[in-house]
Design a protein around this nucleic acid. Structure first.
Lengths: 347, 347
DNA sequence: TTGAAAGCGATACCAA
DNA sequence: TTGGTATCGCTTTCAA
């Protein structure tokens, strides 16, 4: 007597529950071959006779067989899934970047799982969840990585890449836009335009991107024997940019150029100036950073630094692929942005 | 002699490969209990002694044990993952919606896999990939569902919900904003503002959302004994809205109000009017649909219909949950939007 | 309340 | 080139 089976057995005395979807076993039975053969036939790198390969392939296509990713991942220890951890942010730059990321991933047959850090929480809150899924790698963007989270990640065997975040003490890799260089490009350009009273609208206090962009701006000013004229704190949001601009306008002497640490704040700043009856670029030059779509809208026509998004993502995926192959990973890559001169600084 | 093991066995003669992360088996061994017990202990609904439960729980927390989602999914046939299929689109509305979706999912302990239909492709292209992952459900947004894809999905046991898409012949469910009613709201409002020559800027030709919004507009006009004054084709993009507006401006007589089928086109239309020296709202009233963030920017201050995003997503998740429980699903839910009156129609 | 054992569906080793 | 079999890590009967 055959062994008894708890579920879905194939013995006549057990109730048959039809599979919810075709499995390799079903194909094997229909074709009178072993499931090993079916498995081999469907990835055309292992030794198999062409006749059998085609036979299996045809039936598989016919019944719409798709190997179960979970089962495969269990044994191969590869899920084909990359995780992306994002924070709360209405910055359009991230959604534009996300769209590009999906394209890069698709090119390499990878899928994406998206994790969002809860409002007011930190990366550490989602890491336990992330780890349940056998991700091939994990990208962190638009979130600040606490040292605690840093340690949690370093303790795992999950290859991690920071996108536009300065790496902490972990052994993960990072790909960043050269923010300092970008800040310098803007500074030099504003000086070229004849500006002498240049103000900076900063992002959140601890945002490395903002700090570096400011540093680049300062360096270019120093090189020209000048200093930063004014500075207002912002928060990388449209409203924050507008508020910062109003703060700058409240001072007795106005700047003749403003560099906002990102585009969305620059747009807010422009709106605030217009409300105050000022004209861009005639009264004040304005520049941003990121080159989001709205920066190209004629109503703003914003000079900015375009982040090399595709190049950055390409490097991110290279790192993921190498980590996959078992190479040590712990590189930090800076890629230069490109100055986009538009109407907001054209006098 | 014990059975030979190919990999990672526990017999002394086989080479030991340490687990890459803690498993239930490891906890079981350390605690001298069976892995069944560990499994039971961690979901506190099965019968287990409180002593053992706490003991297991503590060690699990200590070594950071997280059950392998793939292995669990293999047996439970639930992955805890919901898929979202999106098309190519730079409409900010979708990224704002995505952010909300992540929040709704997190509340129910669900994760998200994101699939993007390749440019120029159709949903049918990604369905085979989607099916490899044992998703609990699948949401289709911002993609047109071909009848072919419709059939592919209907043939699967994958609960599917269309978001703002009119359901085809499949047995899937759909949640939509009441676009017709929204169009009516805009029409009535524009008439209230004294407009008499109302033009419409349409979305892509086959977009049901655009067709329905137009229909609502027409109904409200008819009710007032009027007809649509003019219409220009758009494509749901900023540039498309601007181009459509220029087309309207090229006609001998100008409209005194314009309703764009979505916000992003309305913004483009406003920019185009300003470039042409026209003033909004004094020369022309403008209204959109969606209530994206940029609609609130002071530079646009756009009157629009706010889609009830949270209510819609809430219904989507209810449907998913019910489908999960095995209830038949084939409902179509319309939720009314809310008119947001702003400066672009305030005279 | 607990443990042993049978799978979930696939891959990969080994021997034939 | 093929089939048999052991596993991946977990849940779930069934028996104790």
């Amino acid at each position: 007597m055959p062994k008894r089976r708890a579920r879905g057995g194939k013995t006549a005395d057990a109730p048959q529950r039809p599979a919810r979807y075709p499995t390799a076993m079903i194909i094997a039975e229909k074709l009178g071959v072993s499931k090993s053969t079916v498995s081999r036939a469907l990835k055309n790198d292992t030794s198999i006779s062409e006749t059998v390969r085609r036979k299996v392939q045809r039936l598989a296509d016919e019944i719409g067989y798709r190997p179960n990713a979970a089962a495969r991942g269990l044994i191969t220890r590869k899920s084909g899934i990359v995780g992306l951890i994002v924070g709360e942010s209405q910055n359009p730059f991230y959604s534009e970047q996300l769209d590009r990321l999906l394209i890069h991933l698709a090119e390499r047959n990878l899928q994406l799982m998206l994790f969002r850090v809860p409002d007011g929480g930190s990366v550490g809150d989602v890491i336990p969840v992330v780890l349940q899924y056998q991700l091939d790698a994990c990208i962190l963007a638009s979130v600040s990585v606490t040292t605690q989270a840093d340690r949690m990640l370093a303790a795992q065997e999950l290859p991690t890449v920071l996108l536009n975040r300065v790496p902490g003490r972990s052994h993960g890799s990072a790909v960043l836009c050269n923010n300092m260089d970008g800040g310098r490009l803007i500074g030099e350009h504003l000086l070229d335009c004849g500006a002498s009273r240049i103000a900076f609208i900063a992002g959140p206090e601890n945002a490395s991107t903002s700090i570096e962009r400011e540093e680049g701006l300062r360096l270019s000013l120093e090189a020209a024997g000048k200093t930063l004229f004014d500075k207002a704190p912002g928060d990388y949001s449209f409203d924050g940019g507008a508020a910062a601009m109003r703060a700058l306008l409240a001072n007795p002497q106005l700047p003749d150029a403003v560099f906002a640490a990102n585009d969305i704040m620059a747009l807010g700043a422009i709106d605030a100036m217009r409300s105050a009856g000022l004209h861009v670029p005639h009264d004040v030059l304005v520049a941003g950073f990121d080159d989001i779509t709205a920066a190209r809208w004629p109503g703003y026509d914003l000079t900015t630094v375009a982040q090399p998004v595709d190049a950055m993502l390409s490097r991110v995926l290279d790192i993921i692929k190498n980590a996959d192959a078992g190479f040590a990973n712990g590189e930090t890559i800076y890629l230069n942005g490109k100055l986009q001169i538009r109407g907001s600084t054209r006098v």
